[in-house]
């Protein structure tokens, strides 16, 4: 059981690393937004699942699941707000982009 939990945790950490590399290496802000919000929330879910397995208590597992849900909700809100503000403020495509 503990081995499965550790493997889940480290796979989650790899997802976090993928998100960070995406934040550093992608050329555009939208690409970075895309990489970060998905990979990180998936990694957090896997780490939470691994820790829930390792803790061996239903109460702790439920709390970890709720924390994951709140973080995903916040991440979604952030992603939408940021992308909307960026898309509305883009510099040179404003004249032909009015139908959006």
């Amino acid at each position: 059981m503990n081995v499965i939990a550790l493997v889940l945790c480290f796979v989650g950490a790899l997802f976090f690393f993928a998100g960070t590399v995406g934040l550093l290496r992608f050329p555009d802000t939208f690409c970075r937004l895309h990489a970060l919000t998905k990979a990180d929330n998936l990694g957090l879910g896997m780490i939470a699942a691994g820790l829930a397995l390792a803790s061996g208590s239903w109460l702790v597992a439920g709390k970890l699941g709720l924390i994951w849900l709140v973080t995903m909700l916040g991440g979604t809100t952030n992603c939408y707000l940021l992308a909307h503000a960026l898309f509305a403020a883009r510099p040179n495509r404003a004249p032909d982009g009015e139908s959006v």
Binding site: F16, L23, L36, D40, G43, L44, A48, L51
Partner: peptide, 21 residues
Amino acid sequence: TADRILAIQLFGTTGVALLLV
């Protein structure tokens, strides 16, 4: 500024994972 805000998002999510561990 948007890139820096994105980094705050990264810190939030990674910080949550770090604190859970």
